[in-house]
């Protein structure tokens, strides 16, 4: 990791999970039931709210979200032997939740065959290289209170479900592209393209709304 990277642009490499992973010795959970339970509690319980937020954003249904979280925790506890202490528990838990959600979706209806044009060779959409729009830039910090509830929810709901899943796994779950690809059983390139498109769509919709509401930053158009 570069030591002199400007703070605002510093990639999110040093999350709490990553730090915890470094601090913990690699190995299986304890065989002592009490210790083992404490290990699980220490890792899992602080993530409950984040996992619930992701589950809610995925299912868009409060009751289903809580059930999905509960089932994820049950599965995680049942399979805790398979987890290696010192690795990324958050990614592991989010992956379990994603698998359960996908299974639920599969059983609820015949799974759609998604014909995503992105492939591993098509790493980034062409638009990724474009300079950001020359419209007035939004001050996202200032816009947060006005956008966070209804507008953000509506914009998120309008995302394609596959895009939303990738977006949530990376954004809330802090999964790496590879972990996300593994969880969703798609190529990394597809993760990248879905993520890019999701962010772009959100930026377009929320940005337009913010500008309409006069929330564009003072830096203004170029």
């Amino acid at each position: 990791m570069s030591e002199d990277r400007p703070g605002v642009l510093k990639p999110d490499l040093d999350t709490a999970d990553a730090a915890a992973s470094r601090d913990a010795a690699l190995g299986p959970p304890s065989r002592d039931p009490a210790v083992r339970r404490r290990q699980f509690e220490d890792l899992a319980m602080p993530l409950a709210r984040t996992l619930h937020a992701a589950a809610y954003r995925l299912t868009r249904h409060a009751a289903r979200a809580e059930d999905l979280v509960q089932e994820s925790y049950v599965r995680a506890w049942q399979n805790f032997d398979r987890f290696t202490l010192g690795t990324n528990f958050k990614a592991w838990l989010f992956r379990i939740m994603t698998l359960l959600y996908r299974n639920e979706r599969r059983s609820a209806k015949s799974r759609e065959v998604t014909m995503d044009p992105a492939t591993s060779e098509q790493v980034l959409p062409a638009a990724a290289g474009e300079r950001p729009a020359d419209e007035a830039r939004v001050d996202w910090d200032a816009a947060y209170p006005a956008l966070v509830d209804d507008e953000f929810k509506r914009a998120l709901d309008r995302l394609d479900e596959d895009q939303r899943a990738v977006f949530l796994l990376v954004t809330l779950g802090e999964l790496s592209y590879k972990d996300c690809a593994d969880a969703l059983e798609i190529p990394i390139g597809t993760v990248m393209s879905r993520l890019f498109r999701a962010r772009k769509q959100l930026q377009d919709e929320l940005g337009a709304y913010a500008r309409e509401r006069g929330l564009a930053g003072s830096r203004g158009a170029e």
């Binding site: 605002v8 642009l9 409950a48 709210r49 984040t50 619930h52 937020a53 992701a54 809610y56 954003r57 409060a62 809580e66 950001p132 830039r137 939004v138 001050d139 996202w140 910090d141 816009a143 947060y144 956008l147 966070v148 509830d149 953000f152 998120l156 977006f167 949530l168 954004t171 809330l172 962010r199 959100l202 930026q203």
Partner: peptide, 19 residues
Amino acid sequence: AEAAFHAFLKRASAHVEAP
């Protein structure tokens, strides 16, 4: 600007009141 937007998205995504 992109970093600020990512931070906004993360914050907004997590803005769900847990039961």
